[in-house]
Design a protein around this nucleic acid. Structure first.
Lengths: 186, 186
DNA sequence: TATTGTTATACTCTATAACTATA
DNA sequence: TATAGTTATAGAGTATAACAATA
């Protein structure tokens, strides 16, 4: 075999972007020597069926799509809903505290606050205690938006699971997820 | 109230990038008139505590970080592990079938296949039945990688939950997630 | 010197449209 | 005309470093 390695001559790894570019001529235009497996009736997922991570990724992906489809006109992402709730429920919290609460880094938090700010949903005041700090408050428009979200988002969330789970199963699932979330450390 | 709207003069919505740029002068350098809320001891999450989507997002985020930290040297993402398992377990499947199995669009699937191809993990053969189709197979190197992943990934997945859940709780959680995943339609 | 918030940058992920080659 | 695969592009998410103002 030719054993063409994926390493580049300078020894660095191929980046994903570089791979996309360099793979242009990679499809071998050779006929398959063996009988083609006609229409796999069922794809085998093997051990993936027992991996927590597999379901977390697939379900969050489904959830995000469901949410965006439902929210449509509001032009808001799940993450942003969480942030608005936290800001609204904890008036005067700082960007640092918001970062910690939502597990975002400072840069992401700033970007999100800038977005809300540009939409007129919040304002940042300089702390009188520590002038490095900002205190974040919803504006009247922000409070209106939050009220609207409170009315809608619960329904979006509930309609995601639809009738795939019974009420008690859904309750049980959320309890287990909450316990896992609370117990994750590393 | 001045009611400065977030709409631009041309009526289009502010993009996230534009918001970031235009918010430069948005921080009002005004002292807070009220007493600063000293060190919120606990952030209130309100209804978020009962939203499935909140936990799915947070936990998947944690999971991804955990996985990348554990996988480190392998330079591989959770999504890519799933793809390698499916390709290895279903030799000769087409990119279309892979897209459907992993809920990716065609472009994403091609990009991922290009990456694996550049690393020498798989090959694409032209179908002898329909020359538009490609049949995807792991190379020897791909099979070696899959064997390695099979040994490691189960451990990564199990160590994520750590001792936050008992074995039976974890089993129960995975069963509920699987049921939800199977029952999601829209 | 250290911290808060911010900006800048780069890379990954996701979605869409356009292109090719086959059918 | 339609389909399988691919490419190109843009927007959104994520991570890191650098910077200004303040402590």
């Amino acid at each position: 075999m030719s054993a063409k390695t994926p390493q580049r001559r300078d020894g660095t790894r191929l980046t994903r972007a570089a791979a996309s570019r360099s793979a242009k001529a990679a499809v071998v235009a050779r006929q398959s020597e063996q009988t083609d497996p006609v229409e796999l009736p069922k794809v085998d997922f093997g051990p993936l069926n027992h991996y927590l991570g597999f379901y977390l990724r697939r379900l969050y992906d489904d959830y995000r799509k469901h949410f965006v489809r439902q929210a449509g006109d509001l032009d808001i992402q799940p993450r942003e809903v969480g942030a608005l709730f936290v800001i609204g429920l904890n008036p005067g919290l700082t960007p640092s505290q918001l970062s910690a609460a939502l597990a975002l880094d400072g840069a992401q938090t700033t970007a999100m606050l800038n977005l809300f700010d540009a939409r007129g949903l919040l304002e940042r005041r300089v702390s009188s205690i520590d002038a490095r700090s900002r205190l974040v408050y919803l504006t009247a428009a922000g409070k209106t938006m939050l009220t609207l979200l409170r009315k809608l988002v619960g329904g979006f969330d509930r309609s995601f699971s639809g009738d795939a789970l019974s009420d008690s199963e859904l309750e049980q699932l959320i309890a287990l997820l909450a316990k896992l979330h609370a117990g994750i450390s590393d």
